[in-house]
Nucleic acid binder design. Sequence first.
DNA 1: AATGAATGAGAGTTCATTCAT
DNA 2: AATGAATGAACTCTCATTCAT
Lengths: 222, 222, 222, 222
Amino acid sequence: MSEADPDSTATAGAPKFRRRAEARPDEVLDAALALFVAQGYGHTTVDQIARRAGLSKGAVYLYFPSKKALLEGLVRRAIGPVAGFAQGMPAHFRGDPRPLIARFLRLAADALTDPHTLAVPKLVVREAMAAPEIAQIYRDEVLARALPALQALIAQGVAGGFIRRVDPEMAARCIMGPLVAHLLLSEVFGVIPEGGLALDRLIETHLAILDAGLEPMLEGQP
Amino acid sequence: MSEADPDSTATAGAPKFRRRAEARPDEVLDAALALFVAQGYGHTTVDQIARRAGLSKGAVYLYFPSKKALLEGLVRRAIGPVAGFAQGMPAHFRGDPRPLIARFLRLAADALTDPHTLAVPKLVVREAMAAPEIAQIYRDEVLARALPALQALIAQGVAGGFIRRVDPEMAARCIMGPLVAHLLLSEVFGVIPEGGLALDRLIETHLAILDAGLEPMLEGQP
Amino acid sequence: MSEADPDSTATAGAPKFRRRAEARPDEVLDAALALFVAQGYGHTTVDQIARRAGLSKGAVYLYFPSKKALLEGLVRRAIGPVAGFAQGMPAHFRGDPRPLIARFLRLAADALTDPHTLAVPKLVVREAMAAPEIAQIYRDEVLARALPALQALIAQGVAGGFIRRVDPEMAARCIMGPLVAHLLLSEVFGVIPEGGLALDRLIETHLAILDAGLEPMLEGQP
Amino acid sequence: MSEADPDSTATAGAPKFRRRAEARPDEVLDAALALFVAQGYGHTTVDQIARRAGLSKGAVYLYFPSKKALLEGLVRRAIGPVAGFAQGMPAHFRGDPRPLIARFLRLAADALTDPHTLAVPKLVVREAMAAPEIAQIYRDEVLARALPALQALIAQGVAGGFIRRVDPEMAARCIMGPLVAHLLLSEVFGVIPEGGLALDRLIETHLAILDAGLEPMLEGQP
DNA sequence: AATGAATGAGAGTTCATTCAT
DNA sequence: AATGAATGAACTCTCATTCAT
């Protein structure tokens, strides 16, 4: 099972043009990611990573100073796109935020359907406590950007009277929550709905509730 | 957090003359829990656990056959109360489920405010992949009971026209989601709102959205 | 298999008259013997011995100061009969030794058919190097008596012209050899002849060869 | 199976410039053999073996997956020559088997005079019960070849009227027995004849008895 | 740039032995 | 006489890391 799927990560993409080039670090990271996800950081050997990347154990240390640096490198490589994605939300949008939220959630769900994208956050959740640096990177680079953006969007929606008067900080968590819980349930506990992951089913249910739930109250209603 | 509860271990049971043991397994579990939570299972030594429990390393093995058995024992000890709590939801309730959901969420939030209660689920999330047995126990004993109960509650609410027509399976995740996400953010990533955990602020915000979001649609509305 | 046969050693013999008496040390030795034979000295736990003897681990130490003392006790208990048996050979016999040798070999084979009798020598062979004291006891008490007796018998046979002129020391080994090899093959290597141990078949074949092989040479023959 | 083939690991490929290893597995086995013989398998530490071979403990595990694999490797390395030796007996010999038996015994005695050759069988006898795999290897590779060859030789001798009518299976044990017993006495119990091991003295005594003992009976004699 | 042999610090686990009761 | 909780020293095996080549 260890080497069963050689094309899963490293060889995927470019055919075999390069052959030992400056793509090496990336190949090592690919191998590390696959193994970390499959077995956890603690149960993965540097030697396994090396072999999966087609290198010797020693060579890994030419590119990364330690095993933990692999984890860090993995997170750093992944946050670029994610952070950008988070930034995608217009900073100074004015109007009903709900369509934007809907688009954001659908995009996020879409992205997280790809195991490659999901892998790193999953990893971070698992190793966060044992490796606080990792958690910090993720917090600083991803959460500290995405959450405030979402909060700001909500805040201006409240201010403009487009949505119900809610606490923006908490509302942001309410918006992301179902997605998080869904992934945790399926990925960590293996509680998978009949008929597959059903991320879209989740998102649509969530949005239905959210849309109505954020509707501003009519005058005189509680 | 570790030794917060002085009566947690020894005073339980017969306060008279006992040799030594009897409460020992529980003391060992207490020590293990504190250390696992603080450092993770993988980075905790049996010797550390033993010393924290005031025993020798060898004595731990008088009560638990392996290190992993400690983790399992921890989970088993914790699921009793939790499962009972989950069962608390009336199985054949008829009517608007929203007040019940609100009470359930508030109770859950309250319980999870106690570090002792939160510790085990946190542990399970982190070690689930490396120790699938653990995840399975938790899934079978907690999730497999709580989730269906919640789903059933929603389903009858939909059937009775008390709430909007939503997918009960997904809606259950939408109900739990914000709580899960909130705890993940604070406990794993250390993203804590200004002014403390603010679990009640989260719950109230969530319930406000949920209450309106589940309101059945008026005729002719989309 | 461990506790399958509770009456095999300890309870065998006396019904249950005594109940905790001066027979305790013997019961412990019985348990130890059974386990040592089944698993080897090194792989047997004092606790196993205690439980098989119906005692607590600590109680074993009331009777024997150490685990090795059990082995020693076992050997000491066994050598009494064996040494006596060896002594059975008349010290000052005069005449053709072959009938005596035959009787001796048949007796020995008979005795060694009983697993109880065979157990201790087997044990000694296995633990001799790790516990030289054991080997020494056996050597001094058993071998140092039986071998010289046999040698003397042969020597006088040679002197009297009853048997061929052989080196008595080596001839003694030639006499015991087949029995030893046979037991080694079957007990240690599990090479058992078709149709069971066949100790008598071995002895008769051996005696046939021996009888003729020891026949004194006729004058003028090589 | 691991080191059965001397060229299996290191010598394969370029015989040119090698770093250090190649002879390492054999060196480790040498160290292990010496220590196992001196102290027994159970009382020998992997660390002792490593140090005696001039390596670190960890390095031993580069060549052998476990301590027991060392024992197995030792046996496998030794059986090659021995088995070949056993095979040396002509399979279809016709005639008086006694000269052949004599040559065989003298060769065997000669070989077993070398401590290196004797070491492994000695080891096997001692560890056979605790490690049945070891006993099985030896039985299959050595005994299962040597014994039948000897038996066949005897059987045809009987059939051809060259030797007395004996049970070939038992006679084979009678032939090997004295050698076995002699080695057991001296190596295990330390009962060494005055003037050294005297293996040749034993063999000659044995052969004298055997030669006459196998002589076919004259007509009319019992 | 790359190898892979080698290291050494630990980790989990076992058990003979002790001792308060 | 007897218990069984407790200890602590060993031992096997693992693996991140280093370094000569």
